[in-house]
């Protein structure tokens, strides 16, 4: 394997420094060439995050588990939200929560990743896109731990692995695209408009209600329901439940549109990061 060159060009390459920064293709090529930086940033924050905590990485699993218990008490027992069929509410809600937690981390942590690492932006150059991507990787590690935990929980409720579970890869890929799109777009936007940072906690809460995290999508019928199903996170969560729990799969057409929307968001996110990159050090 040839060594991965970090932080810039190959020895004989000429770097052209112009006001607008590099064009889309060279920009992407450089980000790819320096991808190890994203991995190292992610590893660094994973290492640093649980130092001086007693529970360590257990927090990654404990948070969605505790939330699940709370929602089970309120929505499962007290309000009796139907899950569809004979699916126990805990696995129903935990599936939604693990996936949602990844997206919510993309909205809050990853979107602040560039702003909160101003010491990098103003002191040293590397493709800035690695900062939100590294945040996403950390969130993905937590989500993976959550998914393992989910498998255990499913076993507790006598639901065993089967071939259908492979279909989970589809919703997971869509989750990555949606999360990356949101993280990239917001991480660049927040540099220009700090307002975004203040709006995000509230927005995340509202968006969680607007996705079938703790209730099934079936509860939203009619025209509103069709609009609702264009949300990529609806496709992600309902798709994951269909794969794991055997609930009805999401409708094909709104699901397809939601995939296109997620890809559009990713495109816009990449574009905004690239366009903002030359001015980032001045904006922070």
């Amino acid at each position: 394997m040839s060594p991965v060159v970090l932080g810039g060009a190959a020895p004989s390459d000429v770097t052209v420094i112009i006001p607008g920064g590099p064009g889309p293709l060279p920009w992407l090529a450089e980000a790819w060439r320096t991808r190890r930086i994203a991995l190292m940033l992610a590893r660094r924050s994973l290492k640093a995050r649980y130092r001086q905590t007693w529970l360590g990485a257990g927090w990654a699993i404990l948070q969605p588990l505790l939330l699940m218990v709370v929602y089970w008490g309120i929505f499962g027992r007290l309000l009796g939200v139907p899950t569809g069929g004979d699916i126990p509410y805990p696995v129903f809600a935990f599936t939604g929560l693990v996936l949602w937690q990844f997206f919510s981390r993309a909205l809050t942590d990853a979107s602040a990743s560039i702003l909160h690492q101003a010491h990098f932006v103003t002191k040293v150059y590397f493709p800035r896109v690695h900062m939100p991507l590294a945040s996403l990787m950390v969130a993905a590690v937590d989500a993976a731990a959550g998914l393992v935990c989910l498998v255990v929980l499913l076993a507790v409720f006598q639901i065993w692995p089967q071939a259908r579970w492979l279909l989970l890869l589809g919703p997971l890929a869509l989750l990555l695209v949606t999360g990356a799109g949101a993280a990239l777009f917001l991480s660049a936007l927040v540099l220009r408009f700090r307002d975004v940072g203040h709006l995000l906690p509230l927005t995340t809460q509202v968006l969680m209600v607007a996705a079938p995290v703790i209730y099934p999508a079936r509860m939203i019928p009619g025209a509103l329901g069709t609009l609702y199903r264009l949300n990529p996170m609806v496709t992600v969560i309902e798709g994951a439940r269909a794969a794991l729990l055997g609930t009805p799969a999401p409708d094909a057409l709104p699901a397809a549109v939601s995939v296109v929307l997620a890809l559009g968001l990713l495109f816009l996110g990449l574009r905004l990061v690239r366009r903002t990159e030359p001015a980032m050090a001045d904006l922070i």
């Binding site: 000429v14 052209v16 112009i18 006001p19 001045d282």
Partner: peptide, 12 residues
């Protein structure tokens, strides 16, 4: 490349 120029060009 920490910050971009406003005008002009540099090649390295």
């Amino acid at each position: 490349r920490i910050t971009a120029p406003t005008k002009g060009e540099a090649r390295v």
